[in-house]
Design a protein around this nucleic acid. Sequence first.
DNA 1: GATCAGTCTTGTGTATACAGAAACCGCAAT
DNA 2: ATTGCGGTTTCTGTATACACAAGACTGATC
Lengths: 255, 255
Amino acid sequence: MYTETAMMGSSTPLRASERAYRQLRGEILDGVLAPGTGLLEVEQAERIGVSRTPLREAVARLIADGLVTGRTGRGFEVTEISVDSIGELYELRQALELQAVRLAAERRDPQAFLVLREQFLTAPELLLHGDSGVHRYYTLIEEFEEAIDAAVVNPFLVGALRSVRTHLARIRRLARKNSLRLRQAAAEHLLIIDAIIAGDPSLAAHAAHVHLHMSLTSVLRAIDEEALARGGQPVPAEIGGPSSAAVYPTISPSS
Amino acid sequence: MYTETAMMGSSTPLRASERAYRQLRGEILDGVLAPGTGLLEVEQAERIGVSRTPLREAVARLIADGLVTGRTGRGFEVTEISVDSIGELYELRQALELQAVRLAAERRDPQAFLVLREQFLTAPELLLHGDSGVHRYYTLIEEFEEAIDAAVVNPFLVGALRSVRTHLARIRRLARKNSLRLRQAAAEHLLIIDAIIAGDPSLAAHAAHVHLHMSLTSVLRAIDEEALARGGQPVPAEIGGPSSAAVYPTISPSS
DNA sequence: GATCAGTCTTGTGTATACAGAAACCGCAAT
DNA sequence: ATTGCGGTTTCTGTATACACAAGACTGATC
């Protein structure tokens, strides 16, 4: 059977393993497949419409990405996201982004960042335009990240950054940010961009540090609030576990 | 030299994909499979003695590790190591190790590092004992790295560090260090260890920075010398061009 | 002699068949 | 009632078969 299902309009028909990878990855990142979900090869292969061979390849890549863990013997499992793991991810993120921003400030093409600067200046009013504005804002962030990657040049560093961003995407889902925080974040980005344009690595790094600190604080608070809201007003003792840790169980990724 | 095949008569019979992965990885790290070598699925599967299915899984992991690149259409290829890529790797390494060492200084169990300290003190005389002493020294380095990993706790950071160390192992092959440099390196390590024991994150980071700088300098010089020796004639000191970069062609990994 | 086209070989991508192993269920025994 | 044991049932791990695509080769033509 050669399923012509998704031509996608794009050029290449896309290999089955690639389709499986993208679909699973997308579903994990979107939270369709919740953390802790146990998956079986046969079941997933059938659902996605590929045979087990390409599906296994897809799962192997997801494991390498740290989005999935191989369960001994029986299938595989979407990795959990604990509050602890968020802090850990930010420790790595800090190491990488400070370095990236430092190098970007040394090697940047000023032109690219001047363009970005203009766009970030419009962020506040952009964020008044509801959901579509927010979406546009996230696109802007992506462009910022791409500009950094391009300026840094370093494939090792960029690779590590991409990995971190993958996990960040999942965390972002846990706590949708309010627009106040987004406007604040835009201002913080602007500062980083200015430092890069000025070719000031040290300032860029410190500005990034500030931004990450604010970001982490905001994420943790948002998750806390959400946990309270979901836990309901009562918060009865019937669930005796450690409060926040129970909501987002333990475990964490590897790569 | 590295270990050979299956000296581990350990517990599990080991899956075929795992065997293939370890063998290929070992051979790449040892330089048996030189950078740029083109590999074919069938040929490698036959050589290693597994079928294509597990071999493909092994190759997928190697690609994820950045040790191998998929070639469009025809087989796969051992990734090259350029002089540029060494510098890039060290940029990532610096970001990660400084952060690791910083966190280790905050969270360490002093006892573990006190033990390490004792051992590193014996390094100089250890390195007088020829090849076996050098081997013992590298074991010591591994123990140091493990102690850092344990102190850092952070799985994300540790994962990224492991990836870097993989690539470092390949580079180490290119330029076997002289024992003078190793003694020097031991002293630098000692400083880092002392800072960690003292619980001084900032000093630990700076000491690590120094160490990495010295290490990179030493590696690059060693490669240069080796290139000169191999290039035969006393290549004039016209370093202006891509002289050194030409020896170890372009390309680099992705992770 | 060179170039181009058609075929032929070879290698990947995918599906499937098969074997071994681990979890599940039920039964029985303490 | 609980626990240990055996049969059963999946599910994984591996091998293999098959289809398609991309080179390589050969032969023919200019």
